[in-house]
Computed example of a mutant assay.
Amino acid sequence: MRKAESVLFRLSAGWTVVGLASGLAYRELTRSTGFSGFTQLAVVHTHTLVLGTIVGLLVLALQRVYRLGEDRRFGWFVWIWTIGLVLTAGAMAVKGSLQVLGSAAADSSALAGVSGLGHVVLTVGFVLVFLVLGRRIRHTQQESDTETATTQAMPA
């Protein structure tokens, strides 16, 4: 499944860029405004690097071993996961920027709702990837058992 691997690689690389850029944005915005407190902007960097880059690369490795892309739900996982991460990181970046700028809008329940929705969507992605992985592990074990039985049944 070369296509699945290519998509996962590109998404992981893209999230790396987003993660590094968000770290730079956090540093520059807080430095230029003289902000020195906690802000959601501080954790966008780690969220995108871990949930985007690291999870993407781990799923890419699992794809190579278990051919996850052979399960039709895998494509759903990739896009649901991406949408969930965009919602979560986007809401965090907006809220964090508003916190640094001292805006009362930072406490908006709408931002909390978008972030919460993003987390729910990420949870659906987790469930999907575990369902796909479980099925592919069972399928791979069955293939291995069949090959072993066939090899043992052949005369020497």
Rank of each mutant, 00 (worst) to 15 (best):
V132E: 06
Q63H: 08
A104E: 13
R67Q: 13
G19C: 01
L122E: 05
Y66G: 05
A25C: 06
R136Y: 03
E28F: 02
T16N: 05
M1S: 11
T88S: 10
W76Q: 10
F9P: 04
V86I: 15
Q142C: 02
L133H: 01
M1L: 08
F35A: 10
T146I: 08
T16D: 00
I54N: 03
A104V: 13
V78H: 01
V94H: 00
G116N: 05
L29F: 04
G118D: 01
G113L: 07
S97C: 10
L8N: 04
V121E: 04
W81V: 08
T46G: 04
L20W: 05
G118T: 09
D145F: 07
V78R: 02
V114L: 14
F9V: 11
Q99D: 05
G84C: 06
Q63R: 04
G125E: 05
I137S: 03
T140N: 14
H45R: 14
A149D: 10
S32F: 07
A112S: 09
G34I: 14
V114D: 03
K95T: 11
Q152C: 10
F130I: 14
M154N: 11
S32A: 15
V55C: 06
V59S: 07
R136S: 00
G134A: 13
L111Y: 05
L87I: 13
T148K: 13
T146E: 11
T151K: 13
S22R: 05
A149S: 14
V78Y: 03
G102S: 12
T39I: 00
V86T: 12
G52D: 09
L60E: 07
L68K: 00
T82S: 08
V43L: 07
L57T: 09
S109I: 12
V94N: 00
A106M: 10
Y66N: 07
V59P: 00
L24K: 11
F38D: 13
V124N: 00
A42K: 08
T150M: 09
V59M: 09
R136V: 00
S32Y: 04
S108R: 10
I80K: 00
R67M: 06
T148R: 15
D107R: 11
E28D: 15
R64E: 04
P155R: 15
V121Y: 02
Q152N: 14
S36K: 13
V7P: 03
L57R: 01
E28N: 13
V86S: 10
H47P: 02
